[in-house]
Simulated scan of single mutants.
Amino acid sequence: MIYIQEAILHILDLNTNEPIYSFAGLDITEKFTIDYIHAMIGKVEDSDNMKEGTLAEGGTIVTMLEHITEDFVGVTRALSDKFFKITKLNPEIPPADLLFTRFTMDDVPCLGLFKLNYSDSLTHYVSNETDTLTNQLIINRAILPSARQAIQEGMVLNLETMQFHVIEKKQMITELAEKKFYFTEMFLEESTKPSLKENITIIKKAVQKTSKAFNDEEFVALAETKRAIVHSMEEESVIDNQVIAEQLFGENYAKKEKFFEEVQELGYVNRAPAEMALAGPKFSKQKLRLNNGIELSIPLDLYQDSDVVEFINNPDGTTSVMIKNIEKIKNLF
């Protein structure tokens, strides 16, 4: 249960050269405002790109947050100023408004910070400059994302434990001449654990490297990997690389050792928290692209059913795919 206590919007449009701070909060009696804030919280909490971290005790942000309850407006202005100083020096970071909200989630006090990047949109305006009423088009360059649109950066912070969930995007940092996750590395000054999506990618890469090292069929290994990941998420709400290694390699200790070396090198977090719902519908099917251009999408629970589909290794080294027992075919045009 989420209860919004207060919210405020600060403008960081770089064209003004200075931030435009609000000296009062948003009107949270408006239903559309509450609905919008709820949507922004969901953008972070329900994303497979969400990463976790903890603000260090005595750090800059933690010190700034000491009086967030008594002086919400002042603290959010100070946070916005720190953010603006970073973006002002790095023109590749898109201009935006910062939306802050203080709320409780299941009775836990939290702070939300969401960067609302601008986009261009056409609108009309009425001109009467020549005593002739004329309807004209004009470009509004400060359109905020709708409740349904994705955002690039956002954070939900537990104000009791200082643990945070964050989504972010790398941007070019002028001084370093490279892209960085500036939101966490420069603004929060903290590191994060890999997201669900990143952990799955790490597992995938480790399996690919292991398969290549032992001349195994990659598509077979990846299909088994997806099944193992789904099983681990459904049964334990984690991605357990020990379980995955056991299902993939059994008693082959050489392959297991190679796999563990790869996941460690790539930065995987063992028993990474994961919710099946966040993995998306793509994890309900095995999708294959054949070198002749044919693409197959097979429900996960049917992939290993030999009465439905069979992969046949031919003497010439090629593979045939046989789809069996089809009663009806429907064109999805």
Rank of each mutant, 00 (worst) to 15 (best):
F100N: 03
E92K: 10
G280R: 04
E168D: 09
K193W: 05
Q149T: 10
L12P: 07
K226H: 00
I202Q: 03
E6V: 09
F23K: 05
A39K: 09
T225R: 02
I294D: 11
T210F: 08
P19H: 01
K204L: 07
I229N: 03
K209F: 11
V263L: 04
H10Q: 09
F181A: 03
E262K: 07
N140V: 04
Y3H: 15
I312Q: 10
S320D: 13
E178M: 05
L89Q: 14
A277S: 15
E168F: 05
Y303K: 03
L55Q: 11
I11R: 08
S22P: 04
E30Q: 12
K287C: 03
T101P: 07
N49A: 06
F183M: 12
L159D: 14
E261V: 08
E224I: 14
E327A: 09
K209G: 11
P315L: 02
T201W: 06
Y118K: 07
I229H: 02
S80A: 08
T101K: 09
F187T: 14
N158K: 09
N199Q: 15
E178C: 05
T54D: 10
K226D: 00
T201V: 10
L278D: 01
E30R: 12
Q208H: 06
K197Q: 15
I294W: 11
V269G: 09
G59C: 09
F214T: 07
E234S: 00
L248F: 02
N252K: 11
F103T: 15
A96N: 13
E275N: 12
N270L: 13
R289D: 15
D316C: 08
Y36L: 06
E45K: 04
L290N: 14
T130D: 02
L12I: 09
D240E: 11
T104D: 09
L89A: 15
Y21V: 10
A206D: 12
D301P: 12
I41H: 06
T123K: 04
R227T: 00
T29Y: 05
P194E: 00
L302W: 09
L332G: 06
T101Q: 11
L133R: 10
Y36I: 03
F333Y: 13
E30I: 10
M322C: 02
E257V: 03
I139E: 03
L122C: 10
T87G: 15
P281W: 07
T87P: 12
I93Y: 03
I298C: 05
L98V: 14
P94F: 05
N314L: 12
L296S: 01
K209T: 15
A206T: 12
D27W: 11
E66A: 14
D48I: 02
L248R: 00
